[in-house]
Design a protein around this nucleic acid. Structure first.
Lengths: 153, 153
DNA sequence: ACTTATTGGTTGAAGATTCAACAAGCTTGG
DNA sequence: CCAAGCTTGTTGAATCTTCAACCAATAAGT
């Protein structure tokens, strides 16, 4: 029952490297996006998901799912984006409870510029410093994590 | 100059898997720690670093570095931990500006319990779902990221 | 049809993090 | 010595996130 099962030395090293790297990278990406475009990562992620959706529009619940955010958080964040004129909200046709978030023209243009810089930074600090085979392994690893975390609900 | 250099399909998949997995995992770990022990991940991380330091004590600046937190954030967080009686602050001998944070007995006992549960969760959602070779690759990948991000300063 | 439960989304307050400004102690150069 | 410039750490306000409570609309059970 209460067997500790500690991590062995190698697992511990890998886990810690991941924690340190992910925190520092997230921090850097956040600052970068904030400095160059005045966006938080959460805001950026929302714009990206919307830009890829048909008609650049999604219901709040779906958007929350795709962007890995709570609904409450999404409400607040979209409110901010709406103030900036990058997203607009409208009611949903078939379900009167539903709300559609839609990327505005301005939002799309804005995202195009931001994405350029963002991708360059992701390359510089992530993609380009990782061995291609290791990168694939990272992909496999985190896909497994996503699946496992999904089961928890 | 402004060549976009987008990610190819495979890189994009891997990057997105990482983003989604890391966000969802961090979220789960946070909730878990909060529900079972009333700690945030940031607080937990601080307790861990202190517990490993000689005399279970570190100067604020070092602690900030080890825990990957800004000094400001650390000040606030340690203040909270001090309120809970898990950490105590005292002035540093040789440098009168310095402040030492020290893990209390209570803090150590508390951490022992929290760490047990935390490690079990880390296993369940991370270590045990990743192929051992992939885990090593993750370790290499994020070590490289840490190094690269470090250069940015 | 009517009552109850569930889902979709928002809100405001509480909690955590960032940011800029600051005080106090060390250090360096003249 | 001392003045200007770093470094350490804290503070309060602004920003962002979480949490619990809530309303409105749909779905389900009887």
């Amino acid at each position: 029952m209460s067997e500790p099962r500690w991590l062995d030395a190698s697992q511990q090293r890998d886990w810690r490297a991941y924690i340190e790297g992910s925190v520092r990278l997230a921090d850097l990406l956040d600052r970068d996006l904030k400095a160059k475009h005045g966006l938080t990562t959460a805001e950026y992620e929302i714009l990206v998901r919307l830009s890829e959706a048909p008609d650049r529009r999604l219901r709040m619940a779906e958007l929350a799912e795709y962007a890995s955010q709570s609904r409450s958080r999404l409400s607040h964040t979209v409110a901010r984006l709406e103030c900036k004129g990058l997203v607009s909200r409208g009611t949903c046709g078939d379900d009167k409870r539903g709300v559609n978030a839609e990327l505005t023209e301005k939002g799309f243009a804005f995202l195009e510029r931001a994405a350029r810089d963002h991708v360059a930074t992701v390359r510089e600090y992530f993609i380009d410093v990782i061995d291609p085979e290791d990168l694939k392994a990272v992909g496999r690893a985190f896909s497994a994590v996503v699946e496992q975390v999904g089961k928890a609900r």
